[in-house]
Amino acid sequence: MDIKEIIKPENLVHKRTPLMTDANLSYCPGCGHGTVHHLIMEVVEELDIQQDTIGIAPVGCSVLAYDFMDIDMTQAAHGRAPAVATGIKRLWPEKYVFTYQGDGDLAAIGTAETIHACNRGENIAIFFINNGIYGMTGGQMAPTTLEGMKSSTTPYGRDYKTMGHPIKITELVAQLPGTSFVTRQAVHKPGNVRKTKKAIRKAFEVQKEKMGVAFIEIVSNCNSGWKMTPNDSNKWMEENMFPFYPLGDIKVEGKIVKDLMKDLV
């Protein structure tokens, strides 16, 4: 069969969602940010909620997320996205509001906003990209940087005695009564992408039921920060990040579905 006979509109099975703008993504080649952007916009398109969706962009690599997603967006100060989302959602309770944040934004400078938005049970979705490093500023240590992991501010590896331990913020927020759906996913392989998309879809759907925060962590790569090729970084992520940040649902419909103590200790 000739290729031309296959490439016909009626045979289309996957195309870029029109809810992504034409702007070129500012992310490094192979960075998971782009994949998650596409997934969120695909879900907004499939649920047909563009006219009711407001996104909050953070400070970090994804500060320009509003250039790429064709929805109304607000750019928040570093770490404050959950507070900004709270302000919007409290006044527009029927709208869909989500934040998009990295690990430095959400789990270091914005820890208070994260914990308290989750504890108040704001009916928002929080999409949390954890790549264990500060990407935009050039690869410094993040709150989620693994023990022994090298970064530009832990050039000899993170030593918990002086630099503290990597924080499992997702396990922490799962324990708060205000979170309804808490899960940790990845986007480096097709199976993971499909699971993440399901989780994102659920994060929007639970907002209708007003059950509290949907918190979706996506463990992702930072090949530039980690100084690896994209595929090597994904392999490194599987071997090093996943054992410490295990994938899977942590809380579903307000009930913890995992032995948290096992993961925490």
Binding site: A76, A77, A83, T86, R90, A112
Partner: peptide, 22 residues
């Protein structure tokens, strides 16, 4: 009217920022 006691002044002003943007 919505009245909310925030977790900090920082959070409060950022709630204002978000809501004012609407």
């Amino acid at each position: 009217m919505v009245v909310l006691q925030a977790e900090s002044e920082i959070a409060a002003i950022n709630m204002v920022y978000g809501a004012a943007g609407t």
